[in-house]
Simulated scan of single mutants.
Amino acid sequence: MKKFLALGLCAMMAVTTFVSCGSSDSGSGEGPTGDITVVSREEGSGTRGAFVELMGVMDEEENDITTQNAEVTNSTSVMMQTVAGNDAAIGYVSLGSLSDDVKALKVDGVEATVDNVKSGDYKVARPFNIVKGKNVSELAQDFEKYIMSEEGQATVAEEGYIREDNTEEYTASGLSGKITLAGSTSVAPVMEVLAEGYKALNPDVEIEIQQTGSGAGIESAIAGTCDLGMSSRALTEDELAQGLTVTEIATDGIAVIVNNNNTIEDLTTDIIGQIFKGEITTWDEVTK
């Protein structure tokens, strides 16, 4: 039924915004027209940091040069809602957070799938990290041990991310107390599932997860106001110099997303970069 509804919407939009359903790089058929609505994450977002680096949305001094005309969203869920509600929109989200509410584009001819990230064919990928300051509690260390165990990494894979290998079985510690995590809104969903698994084995533990963005999570780890920071980007040399320790808990792809009514299926890295830099501003330029 959803398929028929989607086809009906595509047909209705043909007279105004979209005409026929063809791939932008196939050289045949027509695609969307009109202005592009660029949707980006906020500054400090790990997803944004990784995306602009991977797509070349940076100047020679490696500064983020995302177009000033971009609509800025402050979380993965808001990004999805924004693109799902705007036929002209293009954005990006964690592959593990992707849903049928939007369409993931192929990038350079490669689908955004876990298998393609794992094989290295899909290049738009980044690490999921937990970040520890100089003083880490025994309880926080035990939670990290669970995350990196066979049980924890099985959960990572079940949630649609690339797991780490060479893991060991976890044994419940019997510890009690509270762990506070802060940071990436992309890491948070899988961390919530991991927290539930850990608490099932250690029922006297409370885990609070604050979704504040990667940059804020790293700052909290430096300041010692959280037990573990969550980051969906690599740390800078300046951040590492603050005495932080980083553990990569998973690898995640970044899906480039458009509205389900958009007829484009595939874009090159170069075109995506130009769109987010504001050098390409209309869908006509993409499909001509």
Rank of each mutant, 00 (worst) to 15 (best):
Q211I: 09
D266I: 04
V256Y: 10
D227S: 05
A89E: 00
N129R: 07
Y92A: 15
L54S: 13
M191T: 08
D108E: 00
R163N: 15
G215T: 09
A223G: 04
G213P: 02
A216N: 06
A200K: 13
A14L: 09
D100R: 13
P127F: 07
V110M: 12
M58G: 00
G215Y: 09
D238M: 02
R48T: 01
A255W: 06
K118N: 01
L235N: 01
T171M: 11
V124I: 11
E144H: 05
S149P: 12
G133I: 09
I90M: 12
N259R: 01
D35C: 01
L201M: 15
M13K: 14
E111L: 00
E111M: 01
L181N: 05
G133T: 12
D108N: 14
L244A: 08
S23I: 02
E61K: 08
D100W: 10
A125S: 15
G253N: 03
I162E: 14
D204F: 12
Q68G: 10
S214W: 09
Q153N: 07
M79K: 04
A11N: 13
I207F: 05
A188L: 04
V156D: 05
L54C: 05
G46S: 10
G34D: 02
I179T: 03
G177E: 01
E150Q: 15
M13H: 13
I280V: 15
T17K: 06
V19C: 02
E150S: 12
T17G: 01
